[in-house]
Amino acid sequence: MSDASLDIPILGEPTGSALPADPGHEGKGEIHLVHLYPREMSIYGDLGNTRCLAARIRRHGYVPVVHQHHPGQPFPEQAHLVVGGGGQDSGQAKVEEDLERIAERLRSLAADGTPMLMICGMYQLFGNAFVTVEGQRLPGLGILDVTTQGNEKRMIGPVVLTTDHGDVVGYENHSGSTTLGAGQAPFGRVRHGMGNNGADGTEGAVTGHVIGSYLHGPILPANPRLADTLIGWAAELATGRDFAPEQLDDEVARQAQSRQVRRLVG
């Protein structure tokens, strides 16, 4: 168990939501959700992704168990879904050492098909390397075959993508310019915005069930299909059975998303 006193509030999530359900109250099953470095790496509302996942896991009849992983703490024993967000440079520096420590665990989870969603700074750290403006090469986890080059100029603004999970809307705010390795699939194709590098029309990266993306927004509430894809993968991993979703009313999210698409790409 990690030290819960370090946890920060995830708005809407009850404190102690890292506790397993009482016996007999597991619903369709427990799904253990791990948010990496919520203090250091969840700027721009990225904790909203975790909130969204936990809420939708409940609405689908499962029980979310939300863990926060902090630097220096033991990594949770069970992990069916792992999320991470963006941070300031100071935040990134604080997690690098810990990330090296838990790298093997994350790599094996990824190899076993554990769904992961890594946004912005954590997306970069899941790549092969980050090359600073001064030319210094900082190695990453190498779970995604991408390399990021530091930039003076930031890429900022609203984004619309076409992805395997339908249209995806969000907001990018990054100074790194990311290039995909030869066989690396992108997460989406840019219809509005800059994406990985502003040049090749790609955004993010996908390997197996690991998704990296620059999109804040946060990305999941406005794109519930993507959220449910991640939950579905996690549910199968957690229960060994097919995902058994409920029919959710996503009309408000559909309105929010389709209006952004219409506004930005017509």
Partner: peptide, 19 residues
């Protein structure tokens, strides 16, 4: 709104509790 003077990114709404 999300004009420049509002802040164009609305992500911040998820860092507020509306309970």
């Amino acid at each position: 709104n999300d004009d420049y003077a509002d802040g164009r990114d609305v992500s911040w709404l998820y860092d507020v509790s509306f309970e």
